[in-house]
Amino acid sequence: MVDLILRRDGPRREDEAARRLIDSNRDRIGRLADQLTGGGWSAQQAARAAAPAAAPAPMPAAARRPTGEAQPYLRFSSNGRVVIACANSARQLHFLGELRWRDGKRRFVLATAENGFIAPLEEEFAARIADLDGLLLGTETDREALEVTLRERLDLA
């Protein structure tokens, strides 16, 4: 036996049956909710109905723009991205490059068009760290040395 499933407009038959079941038993569901919450369900529904339309919720603090000046710092992401980010907002300010595996070795790859990046690094930054492109990072100590070098050349604290 073969079941044909055809795309139709509107809700599925099962959804309609569930909706009818809930609508026909809405009073019982309300009484059960009151019994489980000690009357809190009805109180909440009454307060919601009596309350005027609320103003839109304020934007979460994480989404607000910071009021202070940008405080740049160097960040090595867990996915290998090397960026300059703002300490106030944690937003990326400049993308410097990536730590990539080439020929079984980890290297720093500068964000340039020659290295296949769509948005290359600004010339101001690229000129300061151009000689670090392709730098071999064999150990964690090498990565820390790269971090110190990048901070010094880019005047980051």
Rank of each mutant, 00 (worst) to 15 (best):
A130T: 00
T141S: 14
A111S: 08
I29K: 02
I129D: 03
A55W: 02
F125M: 11
A53N: 03
R81S: 03
A113R: 15
P66Q: 06
L74T: 05
G39K: 02
R75K: 14
R28E: 13
L96V: 13
S77R: 06
L74Y: 03
E122D: 12
P60V: 12
D34M: 12
L150W: 01
G30S: 09
G134S: 05
P120Q: 04
A47F: 08
I29R: 05
D15C: 11
E14T: 13
E114L: 12
R26F: 14
G40Q: 01
A49K: 10
R8F: 13
A33D: 03
G97H: 00
T67L: 11
T139Y: 03
V2S: 09
L74S: 04
G104K: 06
R7C: 09
E122A: 15
L146Q: 05
L156I: 13
T139V: 07
F95S: 09
A61N: 08
N25G: 07
S77P: 02
A85V: 07
R19H: 05
G97Y: 01
Y73V: 09
A17D: 05
I84L: 04
A157S: 13
E114I: 11
T149Y: 01
V83L: 09
R151K: 14
I84G: 02
D131W: 00
G80P: 07
L32A: 11
R31K: 08
S89I: 00
D142M: 08
D23V: 11
G68R: 03
R128K: 15
R100T: 12
R143I: 15
A46F: 12
I84Y: 05
L99I: 15
A49W: 06
G138A: 15
L99E: 04
L96H: 00
G104F: 12
A51N: 12
L154D: 07
E16I: 15
I118Y: 01
